[in-house]
Simulated scan of single mutants.
Amino acid sequence: MSKQHLVLQTDFGLSDGAVSAMHGVALSVDPSLGIYNLTHDIPQYNIWEGSYRLFQTINYWPEGTVFVSVVDPGVGTERLSVVAKTKNNQYIVTPDNGTLTHVKEHVGIIEARIIDEKINRLSNSGESYTFHGRDVYAYTGARLAAGIITYEQVGPELDVDQLVELPVTEAEYTDDVVVGNIDILDVRFGNLWTNIERVVFKELGIEYGDALEVSIENNRRFIYKNIIKFGRSFADSRLGEPILFVNSLDKIGVAINQGSFAKAYHIETGANWKISIRKTQYNK
């Protein structure tokens, strides 16, 4: 069996030895493995963001890549440990706690297996049940990526429909307004990434250069309202001005040119953060 890439994602951060231990376990399995980091800066316990970052990244990695994603507030409980196989023949090693939501929704999962820890657990990990990222997930992911075990040797099959999923909402629209959620932040730059697909703008006849009324609310409390231009790039707005744009996932984003929209207006993400984008008289 050929070797595959191993990609790690956690909410552990890099301030202690946790991620390094995962790398060490993987290299102990096979010193020639290529090991890469997706991110280790997922906010603590934020399963939704872990799920979204997998979706943001997975399509740009080769077929056969093995991802290990550990955002696991339920470590040590009865939640299952699984390896999912996607439609694109990639693998995700993770707790079954909702981390697979976006990949299942947007990429597709064709098979899932429960990790048999009698076989796929680090042999010298003792009685610890608080670091499955090292003892189960990094170990199993490395064995799978190295070709030491086949996918079938991970453990028994699990019905894909039984995988835990987080609630996901879709954007809704009429002839003159579209309403969606702020799903995630482009963290470093403070841009808002919505669940509104670019194709919705196309169906509504919205074109680059149009001025649109944008409202943002949290639990029905208005946080922001302004007229914003829809541009191709940040260069289509002046320094410090807001702009609507199409992000790297072909969805609508909101930004401030060389500023943080999220920090400027104290905006966060999740099901309670709604964004409405409405055509104005300026475009009629």
Rank of each mutant, 00 (worst) to 15 (best):
L8D: 13
T10G: 02
D11I: 00
D16E: 11
A18S: 13
H23Y: 15
S28Y: 15
V29F: 14
L33I: 08
Y36T: 01
T39L: 02
D41Q: 10
N46Q: 07
F55D: 05
T57W: 06
Y60G: 02
P62L: 01
P62R: 05
E63R: 15
V66G: 03
V68G: 03
V70H: 08
G74E: 11
G76D: 10
T77W: 10
T77D: 11
T77E: 10
S81G: 07
S81V: 00
V82S: 04
A84W: 10
N89P: 01
Q90V: 02
I92R: 03
I92M: 08
P95W: 14
G98A: 05
H102V: 00
V103R: 10
K104Q: 10
E105V: 00
E111F: 00
A112Y: 13
A112N: 03
R113W: 14
R113A: 07
R113S: 05
D116F: 11
D116G: 04
K118S: 12
K118N: 15
I119D: 13
N120D: 06
G126C: 07
E127H: 14
S128C: 05
D135N: 08
G141C: 04
G141R: 02
A146F: 09
I148H: 15
I149V: 06
E152T: 00
E152S: 00
E152W: 00
G155E: 08
L158V: 04
L158H: 10
D159S: 06
V164F: 13
T169E: 13
E172T: 12
Y173I: 00
T174D: 07
D176M: 02
D176W: 11
V177R: 09
V178G: 07
G180T: 06
N181G: 09
R188F: 15
R188I: 01
V200G: 02
V200A: 03
K202W: 01
E203V: 00
G205A: 05
G205M: 06
L212T: 05
S215E: 15
E217K: 14
N219D: 09
R221L: 08
F222G: 02
Y224H: 06
K225C: 01
I227A: 09
I227W: 14
F230Y: 13
A235N: 14
L239Y: 15
E241D: 10
I243N: 11
L244A: 05
F245C: 03
L249P: 02
I252Q: 13
I256L: 14
G259V: 00
S260D: 12
H266E: 12
E268Q: 12
E268A: 07
E268P: 03
N272M: 05
T280D: 05
Q281P: 06
